[in-house]
Structure formats: structure tokens, C-alpha cells
């Protein structure tokens, strides 16, 4: 679903077609992700949810250019993805700020790589930090910030180079529940102003509904798209909406879908020797103890 005011940019279209990712394990090819087709329209906010280990992050790594799919087409604006690039900003779960750079220097990093002059990148970084309410921390080192602030810096840094696409890999996963809610509001407000395409990976159902125009639900491994759920909540989003009947209905629907998959995933683990392996290790230890 497109943003309603029509200000959306013409670029930033993520297009994944029939993506398969397989890797070798114990001599056998194993699919992490299989037959995934996914679409993020320009200016759209799209979330991917699913049980842990379903390959959500694998999809993001493909779009980011860290990973080549074993089969299928991965394109941004019609061009095949070939390695990482600053037109696709990435926000990682582990903050990933450079500890040796001050907050502003972290934000300036991408601009510096583009060859922007000192004065220009300084003023641009300051503007962005001001928008994120972090200007008074520009000369702090990342280790001096709280988790929520670090992640705001991470987002600002990813946005500084003016990407058409923002890829976020469970960006609030390491934050406590209260901070996470605040960060979601900050993010939806920033997105409202910038209107760039966002691919958001999360395991938090509420978060995915609150932020997104569209939510993809993935199956347990091998990850496939189980459902594509449009989120018809109006924009801009406010915290009150989480109590609305639409929100609640979506929440129930998504929860049911994911529950099935989580159970399947756990069942699969039990079947595929999750327990069996432990037992095996245990018995090996026993042998060692006897020896």
C-alpha cells in the first residue's frame, strides 16, 4: 500500500523473484530460503516476520548485497544487486557504530566515502542529528550512549547518504520494551517525513503492524512466504492505534499464522535430531568420563 499523500519517491523498488538460498551442511545442500517472491514498492514500509531461523535476515542480506542467492533474481529499481552500496542503507541489530568515531563522525562516515567536503558533511550531519534529537551528543563516543541512542545514531548514519532503500535487521531487538516502543514512534515519524522504501525484519508482531504498509509472514525453514498481509491503518501512525479493533484483528491473525510456524519449527528441530544430537553428545561425554 502506498503512502496516501502521493509524495512517495519514484525510486527504491525492491524486487525479489523466486529467491532460493542453499548452503552445504554435512555434505548435503540445505535450503535456508526457498521460492521467495517479495515486493517493496517505492516509498513503502514493508516488514518480514517469522519464527526464528526462518531466513528473514537472509533475505535482508541479499538485498544489502552481502549474500548472493543460489537461484532467483534480486533487483533494486530494475538493476540486479551486486554487492553492498550506499544507495541501500542498512541498520543492524548490534548497532554497529564505529567505537573510535564520535557520534557526528559516525554519521559523516558515508558522506566522507562519497568524497563530500568537511564543512558540507559536518553541517549535513548536524542537521540530521538535530532531527533525531541527538545534536547535543554529537561529540560523544558511541560507548557513552544508551542502546536507544546508539540505534538512533545508526539510523541517522544509514540515512545520511540519502539512500533510496533502508534495510533494517531487527534494529530494536536488543532494546528493552519501553525504549523499543519509543523507537518505533521515532522511526514512523522519520519515515513519514522521508518517504523512502523500508524493508524491516522483526519477530515482533505488534512492531510489524504498527510500522508497516504490508507484512510478509514467513514459514519455518526452509523459509517461504506464507502470507502477505496489507495493513490498512491510516497514516501517520499513533500509539493509540494499537488499541483499535483493526489493529487487534491483525494482531490475532498474524499471531495465529506465526504460531503455526513456530510450532512447526520446533517440531522440526525435535524431529531433525535437536534432542537426538544432545543425547549423542551426552553419551560421548559419558564415554570420555569412563575412559
Amino acid at each position: 500500500m502506498m503512502a496516501s499523500d502521493g509524495k512517495g519517491p519514484a525510486r527504491g523498488h525492491i524486487d525479489l523473484r523466486d529467491i532460493r538460498v542453499s548452503f552445504m551442511q554435512n555434505g548435503a545442500a540445505l535450503d535456508a530460503v526457498s521460492g521467495v517472491t517479495l515486493d517493496v514498492e517505492p516509498g513503502e514500509f514493508v516488514s518480514v516476520v517469522g519464527p526464528s531461523g526462518c531466513g528473514k535476515s537472509t533475505l535482508l542480506n541479499i538485498v544489502a548485497g552481502f549474500l548472493k542467492p543460489s537461484a532467483g533474481k534480486a533487483m533494486v529499481d530494475g538493476k540486479p544487486i551486486d554487492g553492498p552500496g550506499s544507495e541501500r542503507g542498512v541498520v543492524f541489530q548490534q548497532y554497529s557504530l564505529f567505537p573510535w568515531l564520535k557520534v557526528r563522525e559516525n554519521v559523516e562516515f558515508g558522506l566522507r566515502m562519497q568524497g563530500m567536503g568537511r564543512a558540507e558533511r559536518e553541517s549535513k550531519a548536524r542537521t540530521l542529528l538535530g532531527l533525531a534529537g541527538l545534536l547535543s551528543f554529537e561529540n560523544h563516543y558511541p560507548d557513552q550512549l544508551s542502546g536507544g541512542m546508539k540505534q538512533r545514531v545508526g539510523i541517522v548514519r544509514a540515512l545520511a547518504t540519502g539512500p533510496q532503500v533502508l534495510l533494517m535487521d531487527e534494529p530494536f531487538g536488543a532494546l528493552d520494551a519501553q525504549t523499543r516502543v519509543v523507537m518505533q514512534e521515532i522511526l514512523t515519524n522519520m519515515w513519514q517525513q522521508l518517504r523512502l522504501s523500508v524493508l524491516f525484519i522483526t519477530h515482533d508482531i505488534e512492531e510489524s503492524i504498527f510500522l508497516s504498509d504490508k507484512v510478509y509472514v514467513m514459514t519455518a525453514r526452509p523459509g517461504r512466504i506464507k502470507a502477505e498481509i496489507p495493513i490498512p491503518l491510516p497514516r501517520p501512525r499513533t500509539p493509540e492505534m494499537t488499541a483499535s479493533p483493526t489493529f487487534m484483528a491483525l494482531h490475532r491473525q498474524l499471531k495465529a499464522l506465526i504460531r503455526e510456524e513456530s510450532l512447526a519449527a520446533m517440531g522440526g528441530e525435535l524431529r531433525d535430531g535437536g534432542l537426538g544430537q544432545d543425547w549423542h553428545l551426552g553419551s560421548q561425554d559419558d564415554v570420555r568420563a569412563v575412559l
Binding site: 552500496g85 548490534q94 562516515f109 562519497q114 547518504t161
Partner: peptide, 12 residues
Amino acid sequence: VLIRAARCLGAG
């Protein structure tokens, strides 16, 4: 992850 982040930001 820092190397990945840098590459995403356009570092050669």
C-alpha cells in the same frame, strides 16, 4: 558487522 556497515556506507 563494522566491516559490513562500512561497506554499506560506500567504503572501498
